[in-house]
């Protein structure tokens, strides 16, 4: 679905990503992990054309994204970010903004179809009862659901999410990721998601890419990527990796400095 070939890009003089090659298949649940500043968000931005590649290409469904119209891209890729609107608007109005890529040249108002889609995606994300509420009155978890609903209103083939679970408690973390997983499995939506929490990434993603200093360190299934040697080297932290007894997925545990000292003394 998305193929990154020899991509080098950055901001102005500063190159952030170096020679990235990556391929995300149709219907895949693909996670991007890595330390702060390793280029995760830049990668996502390159996939939405916010940053133009200095070298290399990004292909969407086999077509070079450079040759696509901005509105065409928006009909295929929806981005779930975290920038709250500064201006007061209701959840319904916010979700309806997701229909903008489908506006025709001389169309000023939503068609019935657009309203119907907005209602449906609010139903899917479980926020229909909040449709008339203002965005500023909602909890962090509900806001995140509204962002996903707006993304779905774009009727995309790919959903890109930038840390949708940060600042959320585990109830909402699981709720959001379960929802995204359901969309992925039932609707065939390709998902590319940046996650800070390695264990959430391990639990939900089919495949992971581990970024380090603007380069790809490793790509593969969670079991292949989340090995303790790799994690320790990339994150410069001592960890223990075990298996989740129910899902058999790797589970990464941090070893604190205090415990580390005790262990070295003991041995």
């Amino acid at each position: 679905m998305i193929e990154v070939r020899g991509l080098t890009c950055g901001y102005g003089e500063k190159t952030v990503l170096h020679d990235i090659n990556l391929s995300v298949g149709k219907g895949e649940f693909f996670g991007i992990i890595g330390p702060n500043g390793s280029g995760k968000t830049t990668m996502l931005r390159a996939m939405t054309r916010l940053i133009r590649p200095a070298k290399g290409t990004v292909l969407l469904g086999g077509i070079d994204m450079k040759s696509l119209h901005t509105a065409d891209v928006a009909r295929k890729i929806a981005v779930v970010s975290q920038s709250m609107p500064l201006i007061e608007m209701t959840v319904r109005e916010f979700v309806l903004l997701g229909r903008i890529p489908y506006y025709r040249k001389l169309q000023f108002f939503e068609k019935d179809e657009d309203t119907a889609i907005a209602e449906r995606v609010m139903e899917m994300t479980g926020i229909r009862h909040l449709a008339g509420a203002f965005m500023s009155e909602m909890s962090a978890g509900e806001v995140q659901l509204a962002f996903i609903a707006r993304g779905l209103a774009q009727e995309p083939q790919v959903l890109l999410l930038d840390e949708p679970t940060s600042h959320l408690d585990i109830t909402h973390q699981a709720a959001i990721l379960d929802l995204v997983k359901r969309l992925n499995r039932q609707e065939g939506l390709t998902v590319v998601i940046i996650l800070h929490d390695l264990n959430l990434a391990s639990e939900y993603c089919d495949r992971l890419v581990l970024m380090d200093g603007g380069r790809i360190r490793k790509v593969g299934t969670p079991a292949e990527v989340l090995e303790y040697e790799t994690i320790e080297a990339v994150y410069r932290t001592v960890v223990v990796v075990r298996q989740n007894p129910l899902s058999q997925k790797p589970f990464v545990m941090i070893v604190s400095g205090e415990v580390r000292e005790k262990c070295t003394k003991g041995s």
């Binding site: 916010l50 509105a71 928006a74 009909r75 981005v79 920038s83 903004l97 997701g98 890529p101 774009q154």
Partner: peptide
């Protein structure tokens, strides 16, 4: 200006978001 109303609506979310919504 009325032709720009959807564009201005999208821009109220910020420039990057407007790009994500397919606005040049």
């Amino acid at each position: 200006s009325f032709f720009f109303a959807p564009v201005l609506n999208a821009l109220s979310l910020g420039e990057e978001e407007a790009v994500h919504l397919g606005i040049d």
